[in-house]
Amino acid sequence: MPATVRSSGTRRNILDTAQRIMAHKGYSAVGINEVLKEAGVPKGSFYHYFTSKDAFGEALLKSYFADYVADMDRILAPSGRSAAERLMAYWQQWRETQSFDHCQGKCLAVKLSAEVADLSEPMRLSLKEGTDAVVDRIARAIADGLKDGSLSIDGTPRDVARPLYDLWLGASVMAKIHRSLAPIDTATALTRQLLHL
C-alpha cells in the first residue's frame, strides 16, 4: 500500500476515533494522547497529520460535516416519496441519532457547538460552514416540497430552514439535559406546523 494511502487512512482513523470520543466527552476534556491511544497510532506522530490541536479540531469538524451532509443528501434525494416525506425522514433520523449520549459520534455539532465557538476562530468558521451546508439542504428540500405540493410555508424556504435547524439543535440540547425525547417530540410537532403538514 502506498505511503500516501496509509497516511490518509491513518488520518481518517484519528478523526473518526476523535469524533466518537468527543461526542461523549466534549473537545476540551479529551487529550490528543487519549485519541491516539484509542486509534492505535503512536503518540509522536500526531504532528505528522495535523499542525496543531486547533488544526486538528478544524479538520475534525470538516470531516464530520462532510459525512453528515452526505448522509443528508442520501435521505433527501429524490425517490418515490414526496419531498415532505423525505424531509420528515431526515428529522426522524435526527431523533434517532442526535438526541442522547449513544450517538456513536453522530451528534458532534450538538455536543461541540457552544464549547468550541469561543475557543478557536477556525473551528467556529468550520461550524458555521457546516451548519450553513445543513440549512442549505433543508431549504432545498422545502423548495422541492413547494414544487411537488407536499408542504407549504409562510415565507421563503431559507426563512423557514434556518429556524427549523435552530429548533432541532436546541431541542437536542434540551433532550440531553432532561434525558427525555420530549423536546424532540415538540420539535417534530412544531416542524409539522411550520411546514403545514
Rank of each mutant, 00 (worst) to 15 (best):
V5E: 14
L15D: 02
L15S: 00
L15C: 00
T17I: 14
R20K: 14
R20F: 05
M22V: 10
A23T: 10
H24L: 15
G26H: 08
G26F: 02
Y27L: 08
A29Y: 00
I32Y: 01
K37R: 12
A39L: 12
A39Y: 09
G40I: 14
S45I: 01
F46G: 03
Y47H: 09
Y47G: 01
T51Q: 04
D54V: 01
A55F: 00
L61M: 14
Y64R: 12
A66T: 15
Y68Q: 12
D73G: 11
S79L: 02
R81M: 09
S82P: 06
S82H: 04
A83P: 06
M88D: 07
Q92P: 03
Q93S: 12
Q93V: 11
R95A: 05
T97W: 00
H102I: 10
C103H: 13
C103R: 10
Q104S: 12
C107N: 15
C107P: 06
V110W: 07
V110T: 15
K111V: 11
L112I: 08
A114R: 15
E115L: 02
E115H: 09
V116G: 04
V116K: 08
A117W: 05
L119G: 03
E121W: 08
M123P: 03
M123Y: 06
S126I: 01
L127W: 02
E129S: 13
E129L: 12
T131L: 13
T131M: 11
D132G: 08
D136F: 02
I142R: 07
L146K: 09
L146G: 10
L146T: 08
L151E: 09
S152F: 08
T156A: 03
P157S: 01
R158Y: 05
V160G: 03
L164G: 07
D166E: 13
L167W: 06
G170M: 01
A171V: 09
A171G: 12
I177Y: 12
I177N: 10
S180Y: 04
S180F: 04
L181D: 14
D185L: 11
T186E: 09
T188F: 15
A189P: 05
A189R: 15
L190W: 08
T191A: 11
R192E: 15
Q193C: 07
